[in-house]
Write a protein that binds this DNA or RNA. Structure first.
Length: 301
DNA sequence: AATGTGCCCAACCGCTGACCA
DNA sequence: CTGGTCAGCGGTTGGGCACAT
């Protein structure tokens, strides 16, 4: 994993010829990155097409913008998605669906692209393993009753504030959640985003304001569910979850969740990425891409 | 060692909305 | 109102890597 950190170094042209108007495509070279960083340092960003021309880059403005926002921006955070971030992503996605940029606003340093990739590669993969659609009720229930409680537990364990009953089984925790008064099931989220405060710089004045991890975990412990910001820009709270539907697939047998099987899968998932490190910071230590950025810094100095 | 397979993620593409003349 | 330009967003692609066979 993390293997392609520096694959774009000096990798030359991508997609071969396709030179519509002398424009380059594909991976960025160190020289291009330096040119872009230097130009933005001196002139700021924005007006990307103009920027691309003035910086002497044979790239579209779009490409420059994407490169800057997703990779070169100094505050971009790299490395593994932490448990806290996973929790936030699950929660925010349950409210907003695939509104990656909106979700990314609540994860400082993370890009919409990164979150989108995380969702597709990890979450959707597990939906596939469960043999259910990522938008299906079954999958949402799995997230809601298993993965999220498990994440909360692990976060708290990492913080040394264990507040979960001893046996660690969520088979016993899940039923109280069944009142489900607050937690949003995606199917309930009507995409009525019009009422949100859309001041693009803000990001903290909508329903999720302050949707920090600690608030999420606190809320979860107090009420057995999330309720942060719910209902401010969405439909009324969903009704209590009905019993599992029959015609179950994957972990849904005879109309009931197979919690054992689900929990096993949950453990595998959380162990495989969440259990590694919870605070890896790409910029501060050797991590994915560190060698590339080291090289970049050397070039800039 | 060679080959096959799956995963990850940077970058691209197409679409949409905002803005302006 | 219309047409053009630009920025931003979400979906998709494909190269490279790690691991399995």
């Amino acid at each position: 994993m993390d293997g392609n950190k520096d694959r774009m170094i000096d990798s030359g042209n991508f997609h071969g010829g396709d030179d519509d108007g002398d424009l380059r495509r594909g991976p960025w070279t160190v020289e291009e990155d330096i040119a872009l960083i230097n130009y933005i340092a001196n002139h700021g960003d924005g007006r990307w097409n103009l920027l691309a021309r003035c910086a002497g880059l044979k790239r579209t403005g779009k490409s420059c913008r994407l490169r800057w926002l997703n990779y070169l921006r100094p505050d971009v955070r790299r490395g593994n998605i932490t448990l806290e971030e996973q929790l936030l992503i699950l929660d925010l996605h349950s409210r907003w669906g695939n509104r990656w940029s909106k979700i990314a606003q609540h994860l400082p340093g993370r890009t919409d692209n990164e979150i989108k990739n995380y969702w597709r590669t990890r979450v959707q993969k597990h939906a596939k393993q469960l043999k259910c659609d990522v938008n299906s009720k079954q999958f949402k229930d799995t997230m809601r009753y298993l993965w999220i409680p498990r994440l909360v537990e692990r976060i708290q364990a990492a913080a040394g504030t264990t507040a979960v009953d001893g046996n660690g089984s969520y088979g016993s925790v899940a039923p109280p959640l069944m009142n489900g008064s607050d937690f949003v099931s995606t199917s309930q989220v009507t995409p009525s985003y019009a009422s949100e405060n859309s001041s693009s710089g803000g990001g903290s004045s909508d329903g999720t304001q302050g949707s920090s991890v600690s608030e999420l975990t606190d809320c979860y412990n107090n009420f057995g569910c999330f309720s942060v910001g719910y209902g401010q820009d969405t439909a009324p709270p969903p009704p209590p979850p009905p019993p599992m539907q029959s015609s179950a697939v994957g972990f849904f047998n005879e109309g009931e969740l197979d919690f054992q099987a689900m929990e096993q899968s949950s453990c595998e998932w959380l162990a495989e990425d969440g259990g590694v490190d919870t605070s890896e910071n790409f910029w501060s230590t050797a991590g994915p891409g560190a060698d590339y950025f080291w090289l970049l810094q050397q070039q800039l100095n």
